[in-house]
Design a protein around this nucleic acid. Structure first.
Length: 280
DNA sequence: AGATCTACCTGGTTGC
DNA sequence: TGCAACCAGGTAGATC
């Protein structure tokens, strides 16, 4: 399930192989993959704009992967891809045909293709002018990027909040890019119980949590992300950080610090794994 | 503000 | 072996 480190890894890989490339066309294999709400381009408009467009920049905001293209009509057109749980965005060789779950294909003038595949059909692509992007409620209400703030700014976010720690970390309006894996992993490293309400955690512990969150995100980016089920980077390779999980997916297994079997419960509607002894 | 529930999806796993 | 039930989870929207 792609979170910040996985989307960052994909963005870096795509940037390496696609920036400067020209597009020859696009095929919508499953029409619903294109989200045209809130002013985004409709299918016909997008498909007509793609031939001859060039890839200008590839970047990430929260868990959204952005491919900026320049078309004859739009100097900047943002293609936003949200992979949700099983989405994949990969660069494919000329001979590669769409696979069973390929939903959208962009052809490149050099013969390669950009495939957007998604087994479970939760992922979406949106094509937006800068103005429409700015007005997109999801995008404009996102919280700060965790790797672009300081520990003090991070701690200040929690001021006056009474929600549970894990619920806040998962809230994209509160802080962007964190999902179930990195919420559990960072709380474990910081020794904070996921169900603790924010008003019971000192500023010092919040700053420490920030250090652990930053560390786990950077380690995961270094490992090219975590591959649970479907995640692969732009080149189709799996990540390696799943081998370094301390709690995620380890319910019942011994805590890496105290050996006590890890507990599984539900917090904020999500499966949550933690150590009752090490996290308070 | 916050918690809880439902919907969206399919493939893998579990249970009988 | 067959088949049903269940689970995974990001986001939106409804409800309390």
């Amino acid at each position: 399930m792609p979170e910040l480190p996985e989307v960052e890894t994909i963005a870096r890989g795509l940037a390496e192989s696609l920036v400067g490339a020209r597009l020859s066309g696009a095929k919508l294999l499953w029409p619903d993959v294109l989200d045209s709400t809130h002013g985004a381009l409709a299918a016909g408009e997008l498909l007509s704009q793609v031939p001859g467009a060039s890839v200008a920049r590839i970047w990430r905001r929260a868990k959204a992967l952005m491919v900026d293209i320049a078309t004859s009509r739009h100097p900047v057109l943002h293609l936003s891809f949200h992979l949700r749980m099983t989405g994949r965005l990969t660069v494919e060789p000329p001979e590669q045909k769409p696979r069973k779950h390929t939903r959208l294909v962009f052809g490149l003038e050099d013969g390669r293709h950009l495939h957007f595949a998604d087994t479970r059909k939760f992922g979406r692509c949106r094509a937006m002018t800068p103005e429409v992007l700015g007005d997109w409620p999801f995008f404009s209400s996102l919280g700060p990027e965790p790797l672009e703030i300081s520990d003090s700014e991070f701690a200040a976010l929690f001021s006056g909040r009474r929600g549970r720690m894990k619920a806040l970390l998962l809230d994209q309006k509160f802080i962007a890019g964190i999902g179930n894996i990195y919420a559990d992993e960072s709380l474990f490293r910081a020794g904070i119980h996921p169900g603790t309400t924010a008003d019971r955690v000192s500023v010092a512990r919040l700053r420490a949590l920030y250090g652990h969150l930053r560390e786990v995100l950077l380690e995961a980016i270094d490992a090219n992300g975590s591959s649970i089920s479907d995640y692969v980077n732009a080149q189709g390779d799996a990540g390696a950080f799943q081998n370094d999980f301390r709690v995620y997916g380890r319910a019942g297994e011994p805590c890496r610090i105290c050996e006590k079997p890890l507990t599984r419960s539900t917090v904020a509607g999500r499966t949550t794994v933690y150590c009752t002894k090490c996290q308070r």
